[in-house]
Design a protein around this nucleic acid. Structure first.
Lengths: 211, 211
DNA sequence: ACCTGAACACCGTTCAAGT
DNA sequence: ACCTGAACACCGTTCAAGT
């Protein structure tokens, strides 16, 4: 006989099940029904704790940022702090494709708030005026999250990823050089790798915004 | 009696129906079944012309770029060319939220190829070496498309959009200033508007990469 | 060759019913 | 108060059947 399941559910239990599911099967395995199933619970039960699936996703996406935030300590070099924090943020968004969940706007949960506070503080420590600090913060986060969102669908496995770039580079070989002369000239150099591209842009933005 | 529908379908007809659907009801109304329905055709019929829904989306997303490409002419100022092209690309991705379709990797359709060719050419005209031209191209496109992807879910209506920022700014008012002192200090300045943020980052990247 | 129709395995969400 | 079960309106995709 099955005992009652009243009280077995909570936001914390649901979120943890979602994180476990994503870590095991990737972000595409995430759905409200899949989370309920992994808990052995009816899908409708989730609605006692979250308004809808977006509401759940927002909290899960913040929890997924924990590895970025845990153990992060500022140094006396604010530019290095920004660089490390944005690099780590990108990394964690790429793991299991979590970036897909972060396209819902700000969550206002603790890990996001820590990043915001740290970024704004670092910008001020660089000597920026308030308006400039805010602008630098927005641009850097937009660049980092946006870049991760585009890269997340790619395989995390380095070998598979390199093959993807090979294929994309190869696509250009089929074009008529007369139609696209510059692509034809440069196609061997395209897709140097998304890490290289991301860091080039990040360093450029830091150089430009943080003096 | 219904006449046979053999031959009524083609990639062009299907894509045009998809574009019309998206322009009428927004990108969230797009689905393979919705496109089929708007054509008065069985969903399975689409599979004679496209491998799957992603295959269809890739071609639709390139067609949606047409307004950016049509009538675009390079000038003798390559930096201005890059700035205008990226600004227009962002605009067209934000219209009807088309950016959501562009997160599937490169399409290799004509409008995308035009943008790639134009960007690489402009980078070379700035006097960049081949490797640097490729890097500048990747960073600028990643920033522009990434930024649009994050902004696309926001309402296009300026008033609704401003209200959204008001709400997001207001969220910070509920935080304890002791926990987040810098946010508390700067919260009135946050969310200056995504156009302002985007252009600040774009100009920074142009300044840094295109000398 | 091209389209239809039915079927399958999924979604998010609502609402009346149980305990 | 909390969870279940059934239902609704969607998805993408496959496959046998019609013409």
């Amino acid at each position: 006989m099955v005992t009652s399941k009243r009280g077995t559910l909570s936001r914390e239990v649901i979120c943890q099940a979602a994180i476990t599911l994503i870590e095991a099967k990737g972000v595409n395995a995430f759905s409200l029904r899949a989370v309920a199933k992994s808990l052995g619970v009816d899908p409708a039960a989730i609605y006692r704790h979250y308004a809808d699936v977006d509401d759940l996703m927002r909290e899960v996406s913040d929890l997924a940022l924990a590895p970025t935030v845990r153990d992060f300590r500022c140094t006396d070099d604010p530019r290095a702090d920004v660089r490390l924090l944005m690099t780590r943020l990108r990394d964690v968004l790429l793991v299991n494709g979590v970036a897909r969940l972060s396209a819902l706007g700000p969550t206002r949960y603790p890990n996001e708030l820590f990043i915001t506070e740290t970024m704004l503080d670092a910008a001020l420590r660089c000597g920026l005026a308030d308006e400039q600090a805010v602008l630098a913060y927005h641009v850097l986060v937009e660049y980092t999250v946006g870049s991760a969102t585009l890269d997340a669908p790619l395989s995390q496995d380095p070998h598979t990823r390199a093959r993807t770039y090979d294929i994309w580079r190869g696509d250009y070989a089929e074009l008529a050089a007369a139609d696209y002369p510059v692509i034809a000239q440069l196609r061997g150099l395209l897709y140097p790798g998304s890490d290289v591209v991301f860091e080039a842009g990040l360093d450029a933005l830091i150089a430009q915004f943080l003096h």
